[in-house]
């Protein structure tokens, strides 16, 4: 597989970050950074990462099924993650999540037909004091109201 020069540089750095013989440590970061570039974890990527760190594809698959941020199916271009955990719940995070589902016409871990958006009801994202909070891809949005969410999603939809 070929990746961007930037990702290759990151892989090189990662493979040098752990003690000799411990290159397996780079697995989870490599999978996540590669997912960011190619959109999902494919079988080809699993094989590639396995080869580069010297483990079997089975060992990569076993790890990848554990981590909630690693996806084997494509997400929307904008992955909308709404926290409904306790601190957000106390600020109506559950209602915000339902609003987002209605607005986009999709449910948990579903993708819109045009591939623009996906939704995930997520566990605590570490924005508890600024609840309710969401993440769109890696960007945090704090004190989100249904109106602010509408504006945000409409703005993203218009982006080229």
């Amino acid at each position: 597989m070929t990746f961007s020069a930037q990702l290759e540089a990151r892989f090189d750095k990662l493979l040098k970050s752990y003690p000799p013989g411990r290159q397996r440590s780079a697995m989870i970061p490599m999978l996540l950074y590669a997912q960011d570039e190619i959109g999902q974890i494919t079988g080809e990527l699993v094989n590639e990462v396995a080869t580069r760190i010297g483990v079997t594809p089975l060992q990569v698959n076993e790890v990848l099924s554990y981590y909630s941020m690693l996806h084997t199916k494509p997400l929307g271009k904008y992955h909308v993650q709404v926290c409904t955990n306790i601190s957000c719940l106390l600020h109506d995070g559950d209602k915000l999540y339902e609003h987002a589902c209605r607005k986009l016409g999709i449910g948990h871990k579903e993708v819109t037909a045009d591939g623009e958006f996906s939704i995930e009801e997520v566990e605590c994202i570490g924005a508890c004091s600024w609840a309710p909070a969401i993440q769109v891809n890696y960007d945090f949005h704090h004190h989100v109201t249904p109106e602010k969410l509408d504006q945000l999603l409409d703005g993203l939809r218009k982006k080229p």
Binding site: I86, E123, A127, C128, S129
Partner: peptide, 11 residues
């Protein structure tokens, strides 16, 4: 790995 619900200080 700050993930305990209610916690956002390490951030």
């Amino acid at each position: 790995d700050e993930s305990e619900p209610g916690t956002c200080k390490d951030r």
